[in-house]
Each structure stands twice: as C-alpha cells, then as structure tokens.
Nucleic acid binder design. Structure first.
Length: 492
RNA sequence: GUCCCCAUCGUCUAGCCCGGUCAGGACACCACCCUUUCACGGUGAGAACCGGGGUUCGAAUCCCCGUGGGGACGCCA
C-alpha cells in the first residue's frame, strides 16, 4: 500500500459482502465503464466517484467494467492507467478485473473483450425475435414502425426514418425525458465486433446493473439503450445523467488535451487524492448546506443522486488548489512526513529530492515539520526546501539586491555572527529572545536581522520562521552561511 | 440543420419542488488587521437571479416564448 492510498483506510467502509438472495434483489449495483484509451480524465474520475459514492451510500456494489471493444484503439498498458487512477483516488471496486486475484465477481468476465460469447448469445435472441437484419456486412437493430426515405442535410445522405413512439427516459437527475429514436443502428460491425450500444446494454443487463450513472453526453444514446432493453424483454435500469465538466477557459466540455484535465497530472504534482475527491464531489453536488471540506465518510453519508445538479460545471483549478492546501494543512505531522517522502521518491532523479532522501531522518523530519504549515502543495517542496538539503542553493538576485542595499546589512551580519556563540539553539523561543535582545541593544527591530539572515540562509525572502530555520540548521551551519554572505557582500 | 439537456456573483453553489427572508456560503480579486519574510488566519468591500411576456396582492422560485451555453446526431466509447 502506498502513501497515496493510505488515507482511504481511514474511511472504513466495508467492501461488498455476499448477501441473501432477497437482499441482493434490491441491492444497488452500479458500474463505471471506462475505455482504455491511455488517459484518465477528470470527468471520468467524477463519473467513477459518483458511482462509487452511490454504491457506498446505499451499501450497494461498485463494478468496474472495461469497455475495450474497439480493438483499433485499445492498448494493453492502457488498462493500468485506469486501475492506477482509481486506486490512487481510493475508489475501490467490488467486482471487476483485479479483484480477488484474477477478476472477482459472479458476473464476469469484466473485460468486454472477453465477453464475445455472451454478446453472441444475446445477438441470437435479437435475431430470433426478428429485430435484426444485415446490411453492408454489419448487423443492424431494427426499429418497429412505418419506414420512409428522407434526405438528411447534415449528413448529406438519404436515411431511412422509422415512425416510432417516443422513448421515455425516466432520469433520476433530469426527470422525464422523451426522445425519438427513429433510425435503425448498427449493433455488430462488419468485422464481427459488437458495437458499444449492444455490449453496454447486454453487460448492464447481465451484470444486473440497477442504476446507470454516467455523463450527460450519453443522454442521447439512452433512447437506443432503452429500446434494446425492451427488445430483450429486460427491465430497464434507472438512469442518472450527471452534468458535464466544462473546460476552465474557452467553450466546450473538458477534453483530454486541456490543461489540468488528467488525473495523472495531479498525482504527479503531489496533490492529495482526498482533496481532489472532495473537490470533484462538489462539482455538481453539494451536501445541502455550506460545508465544503468534508471527510469522505461524510460525503458518502450525505451523497444522493437527487442532490446532483442539472447544469454543467466549469472546472476551477484555483479552488482545487485551495482545497488541496486545506487538506495539506490538516494532515497529521507524521502523515505529512510520509507523504512528503513519497513525493520526493516520485521525483526520481531530481537533485533536491535525492538530497532530501539522503538526509538524516531526524533532520528531514525537522525540516518537514517546519514547512508543513507553509506549503500549498507538494509540488512546491523542492524549490521551497532546496537550501535545507544543499549548500549550493540558488540566490534570488532581486532579493539580494534589495536586502543588501537597505540599511547596514554587513553590520547586522557581523552582529549576528558575534551573538551566535552565546545563543541557545535549543528552542525557537530562545533564539528569538537572543535576536530581540541583540536588536534592542542597537535600537533596532527583529526584522532588521530577519531579512539579512534569511537571505544568508536561504537565498530568498520567503520561507518558514527564521528562528525555526536557525534551530534546524544549527549553530555551525548558520555561522557558515552568514559568513559566506558577508564575504561576498563586497562594497555594497 | 435536427433532436436532447441546462440557465443565481468572474467560478463552484444555497435558495426553486411547497411563490412573500437585506438572494447566503466558498474560490478568486481588493482593502485593512495579525505578523519575523512568505503564507495561514481574521475583518470588510465590490460582485448575480439571461431577456420578454404571462399567472399572482406578490415571481429567483410556477407557465410560455426568445436568447445564450452544453451535448448528441459514427461500422468511437
């Protein structure tokens, strides 16, 4: 178990356990059915999250099914992208690939590429019922009704329209939606592979899915699906079409190419998965009051499909960053420590990361404790802590210019150095007292020493408490760095 | 072009279903306070019911029409 997923253990929710058959009849069964394209999109993450939340809220079953019928587009290593993202987010599935060894659950296999026999069976039922025909080598689903040829200007071709009654979709989020599905559609390609609409319905049917929770972009497919369910004589699941996530700038829904659209990106940047989950939960849903930052257990308890919004939401990276900061601040110190170390490890060859990981445990811990309350995200860690782990840290030229031309920095450095031997490094308070005493003697303020000391120690003007820095560095290194700045101060 | 969905501060949203509160909160932005830098935090400011009709004593809330936004219209999923 990695540090990334450890948080989830705190939200103890029992995994699906076999139920009595009467119980199982009414048990909620939802699925997340991604396609292995090599990307895991923020929108997919939220769809998965809403499904997972609903399952956990109702004590139902969350199923992962991989929709890999398009052999042209799928690639073996892409499957792991899905598993990794879901695991990182803590969205554990009860049935699906990788469960209990080689794919657990009574309704498998959970990879569509392995379900060809099932699709053939169900195709047979449709054929037997006279609801299919072949055209151009493909199998089409036949709608029932009077037919007529119509020229479609948009598609620039003649199509066959079927006079049918509107399909009624009873949507948990949108209410009653009517749509006219008036053209036959392909269910098996000429290469013999079944099409999304067929396999999606057959799988939902055979996996006994009770609630189909998916993006609103599927709403217009739903009439096809409902007609297929009806053709199979199967009960139609409840639908819940959730609003889409729009890109933060410009028109349209978020797509893979948009900045910040991939879950992997936040993982790499050291965002906390619980922060991302909390943020995503709030995109289109809210607990009904002003609460925003909530433990996952609360979100599960409060989540309900009826509380989901109908309008699309624009992705706001700034709000996500704020959520992440709030979670980072609230992390228990030892937890922060572990995750900081995990983050440094994930950086691989990064020089600061290597130096940080090579540092003595106690020192590393002291530095992290000093910095926790200052960071907004782990991605800031290397730049923020570089000077703790190497003497060859960069100096901000502008800051140096500013600090070294104001007042009498060289004198301040000399006074500080002179005071060092007698300084008590045991506590921040003692260090603060010593510097204040020094300042008082010259009729100066703490700040007169703080700026120049910070520049010497860190090469910048931002960072944690200067007294804390003194303590962590220790007398000797403080002395060295003050001396080094003094030596290079020149005539300025 | 056709069909479907949606519409409250810049953004996420509460309020709408069961008409009557200064339309509330959060992010962002600005100011001030706190302070040892930078943050955090605190206080405060600015900021919205898309437009037009209707129903009603009264409409953000109910109805209709516009407009705007989004989605779908593949032998992709």
């Amino acid at each position: 178990m990695t540090g990334d997923t450890r948080w989830f253990l705190l939200a103890v929710f029992p995994k699906h356990k076999p139920q009595s058959s009467s119980r199982a009849m009414s048990q909620v069964r939802v699925r997340f059915a991604p396609s292995p394209t090599g990307f895991f999109h923020i929108g997919s993450a939220r769809t998965a999250l809403f499904n997972w939340l609903y399952a956990r809220h109702t004590g139902g079953v969350f199923i992962l099914r991989i929709e890999d019928t398009d052999k042209e587009r799928n690639s073996a290593e892409f499957y792991n992208v899905i598993y990794d993202a879901l695991n990182w987010l803590g969205l554990n599935w009860d049935e699906g690939p990788k469960v209990g060894g080689s794919g657990g659950g009574d309704f498998g296999p959970y990879l569509q590429s392995e379900r060809a026999g099932i699709y053939a069976d169900y195709l047979g039922k449709l054929k037997a019922a006279g609801r299919t025909y072949e055209k151009d080598g493909a199998v089409w689903f036949k709608l029932l009704g009077e037919r007529s040829e119509v020229y479609d200007e948009h598609r620039k071709k003649t199509v066959t329209k079927v006079k049918v009654a509107p399909t009624v979709i009873d949507d948990l989020i949108r209410g009653r939606v009517e749509r006219v599905e008036d053209e036959d559609f392909v269910i098996v390609r000429s290469d013999g592979n079944p099409v999304f609409h067929l396999v999606n319905v057959v799988d939902d049917l055979t996996m006994k899915i009770t609630h189909v929770i998916r993006g609103e972009d599927h709403l217009s497919n739903t009439s096809k699906h409902v007609e297929l369910f009806k053709a199979f004589g199967a009960p139609v699941p409840k639908f819940a079409h959730i609003p889409l996530i729009l890109k933060q700038n410009g028109p349209g829904k978020m797509s893979k190419r948009d900045q910040g659209a991939l879950v992997e990106e936040y993982q790499k940047r050291g965002y906390l998965p619980e922060a991302l989950v909390n943020f995503l939960a709030l995109l289109g849903w809210n607990p009904g009051d002003d609460r925003e930052k909530m433990p996952i257990a609360d979100i599960i308890r409060l989540f309900d499909l009826l509380g989901v919004n109908q309008s699309n939401a624009r992705f706001d990276e700034k709000k996500l960053a704020h959520m992440n900061m709030a979670y980072l601040l609230a992390l228990p110190p030892e937890e922060f420590l572990g995750r900081a170390r995990d983050f440094f490890r994930s950086l691989g060859d990064n020089a600061v990361a290597k130096a940080a990981l090579a540092a003595p445990e106690a020192y590393f811990q002291a530095v992290m404790q000093l910095c926790q309350s200052k960071l907004k995200s782990f991605e800031e860690l290397p730049a923020y802590t570089v000077y703790f782990f190497t003497d060859e840290f960069p100096t901000d030229a502008k800051v140096r210019e500013k600090v070294m031309t104001k007042g009498a920095p060289k004198e301040r450095l000399q006074e500080l150095m002179a005071a060092l031997p007698a300084m008590d490094f045991a506590s921040d308070a003692a260090i603060e007292a010593a510097i204040k005493e020094l300042a008082a003697k010259g009729g100066l303020g703490f700040g007169d020493y703080q700026a120049v000391a910070r520049l010497a120690l860190s090469g910048t003007n931002v960072g944690p408490s200067i007294t804390g820095m003194f303590r962590v560095f220790g007398r000797e290194r403080v002395e060295q760095r003050l001396a080094r700045l003094l030596a290079t101060a020149g005539d300025s």
